[in-house]
Computed example of a mutant assay.
Amino acid sequence: MKYTEKISNRLNDLLVKTYDAEKGYKLAADEAKAPYVKDFLKDKEKQRRAFGFELKSEIMEFGELPEKGGSLKGDLHRVWMKLKPLMSSEKTEKILEEVERGEKASLEEYNDILKNSEMRLPPSTERLLIQQRDAIQAALNTSKMYEELRS
């Protein structure tokens, strides 16, 4: 497998997860009742859409084709997100818990790619992934803050 193909495959994995996160944030925003949480979730949905465009562009720079949709795992997670709050009296708290779980998984994925010593990323790709990872960390921190405020 060529070096550029290996990198674009990893970026495509991130892209699929970004599609999943965007859809998940939309679902969560539709389900959330607290206006400040709803606004936060809508903002993150837009952010993930932007991340997707950036990742697609980066993949095409490597001469590869970007993925076009989310994953079955993401679809199943969204179904769970929709059902889980129905079983709870505290819908917003459950939504925020799911957001945190998803963001932690995203952080792990980004860190895995960034720390992979076998696959040295071009500086532009590394900067993009660091920028997106840091934005995900900020979203995770905000979600935790909102959850603490609800407690």
Rank of each mutant, 00 (worst) to 15 (best):
Ser106Leu: 15
Glu103Ile: 03
Gly102Val: 08
Tyr146Val: 04
Pro35Tyr: 05
Leu129Gly: 06
Met119His: 12
Ser106Arg: 11
Ser124Thr: 14
Lys46Ser: 02
Tyr146Ala: 01
Leu65Met: 13
Glu93Thr: 08
Pro35Ile: 09
Glu93Cys: 10
Glu109Gly: 00
Arg78Glu: 01
Ala139Ser: 15
Ser89Ile: 02
Asn116Leu: 07
Tyr3Ala: 10
Thr142Leu: 15
Gly63Trp: 06
Leu76Gly: 00
Asn141Ser: 13
Leu72Ala: 00
Ser89Thr: 10
Pro35Lys: 03
Val37Asn: 00
Ile136Lys: 13
Leu121His: 12
Ser106Val: 08
Leu86Met: 14
Ala135Tyr: 10
Arg101Pro: 02
Thr92Glu: 07
Lys91Cys: 09
Glu61Asn: 12
Ile136Pro: 04
Asp20Asn: 08
Ile136Gln: 11
Gln137Pro: 04
Lys82Pro: 00
Arg133Gly: 10
Asn9Arg: 12
Lys17His: 14
Lys42Ala: 09
Ala135Ser: 13
Lys6Gln: 13
Leu128Asn: 02
Thr142Ala: 15
Met60Ser: 00
Glu98Val: 11
Phe53Ala: 08
Arg120Glu: 11
Leu114Pro: 04
Lys23Ser: 03
Lys73Phe: 12
Ala139Gly: 05
Met119Ala: 03
Val79Thr: 14
Leu83Ile: 13
Glu147Tyr: 15
Lys38Glu: 07
Glu109Gln: 12
Ser151Arg: 15
Glu126Ala: 09
Tyr19Cys: 09
Pro122Trp: 12
Glu45Phe: 13
Gln131Ile: 14
Glu61Leu: 02
Met1Val: 06
Tyr3Arg: 06
Leu65Arg: 12
Asn111His: 12
Glu61Lys: 10
Leu86Gly: 11
Ser124Ile: 06
Asn111Gln: 12
Lys68Gly: 12
Leu114Tyr: 11
Phe62Asp: 09
Lys104Ser: 06
Glu118Asn: 05
Pro35Thr: 05
Asn116Pro: 14
Glu148Gly: 09
Gln131Asn: 10
Ala21Gln: 06
Val99Arg: 02
Ala32Ile: 07
Lys17Ser: 03
His77Val: 06
Val79Cys: 10
Asp134Leu: 02
Ile136Met: 01
Leu121Cys: 12
Lys46Pro: 00
Lys94Arg: 15
Lys23Glu: 09
Thr125Gln: 04
Asp30Gly: 05
Lys23Tyr: 11
Leu128Arg: 05
Leu65Ala: 14
Trp80Cys: 00
Gly24Asn: 04
